[in-house]
């Protein structure tokens, strides 16, 4: 089946990111489409989370443009943007006395009235996400009672309940074991494909990203490339990611090898 041309939802051109005058990374160009799972990868401290937060308007960009659904990020009011982008951050959840249901319900805030009343539409959406992420049995649990893997699913559910075309996740698989890492990755892939969402995550699991993501944004500081995993492998983009005397990349298997 030949799919129709996918719609570009998130576009960044000549982007420079950082804090105030301190530039973290520049010349970032990416264009992400609806129905695609993308991963931002790179070594520690290269600016993956900074890029993610900049895309989500949680911190100002230094230079360049970001377009969301064809309009510049700066033209959106906070409440409008909340219906376009939802975010899952790495920072620990402080309010862990919320129940799973309450936490997910907060995702409906952009759609509720000033008092935050949940209407039929909202509770339907929350039930949907509970179902999709297999959280029905947990819905009355408090967040502190959950395991790391469950909590990550709940946070994802909250973002999903926000019903936005774009979902950004900052390192959704840290603290998880291999099985749960793969589980989250596959879940995200299914959601992106079936619900036509643009999902972007940062991760250190480059091998997993190569196998499961539709798109990879490779941050290297001065040179930043993005594209499909096989394209990037063909360009030898991963070869120089780590110092070659320690870790080297095997293009045929798409995996990294430790040099002994």
């Amino acid at each position: 089946m030949e799919a129709k041309e996918k719609r570009i939802t998130l576009n960044a051109k000549d982007l420079t990111i950082g804090y105030g005058k301190k530039i973290v990374a520049k010349d970032i160009n990416l264009s992400l489409k609806a129905g695609e799972l993308s991963a931002i990868v790179g070594i520690n401290g290269i600016g993956k989370s900074t890029l993610l937060r900049t895309l989500g308007n949680l911190q100002p960009l230094i230079d360049g443009v970001i377009d969301i659904d064809g309009n510049s990020l700066t033209t959106y009011q906070p409440d409008q943007l909340a219906t376009k982008i939802s975010i899952v951050l790495t920072e620990p959840l402080i309010a862990n006395n919320l129940t799973v249901f309450e936490l997910i319900a907060l995702g409906r805030q952009p759609y509720t009235n000033w008092w935050g009343t949940l209407r039929q539409r909202d509770t339907d959406k929350i039930k949907d996400t509970l179902h999709i992420l297999d959280l029905i049995n947990l819905k009355n649990k408090k967040c502190y009672e959950l395991s790391d893997g469950q909590l990550q699913r709940v946070l994802l559910a909250r973002a999903l309940a926000q019903d936005t075309p774009i979902i950004l996740l900052d390192e959704p698989t840290t603290h998880l074991d291999l099985y749960h890492k793969v589980h989250i990755f596959k879940l995200l892939k299914t959601i992106a494909h079936e619900m036509e969402k643009t999902i972007v995550l940062t991760t250190h699991e480059i091998e997993m990203a190569i196998q499961l993501c539709d798109n990879i944004v490779l941050l290297e500081g001065d040179k930043n490339t993005s594209g499909e995993p096989c394209e990037l492998i063909a360009q030898h983009a991963f070869d120089t990611l780590f110092p070659s005397d320690t870790v080297s990349f095997d293009a045929t298997t798409g995996t990294f090898k430790i040099e002994k």
Binding site: A82, I87, L89, E91, Q109
Partner: peptide
Amino acid sequence: NAYLLGERYAKSLG
């Protein structure tokens, strides 16, 4: 209630 999740989440919730 949005602030319960922290300032960044509150912002992303509009």
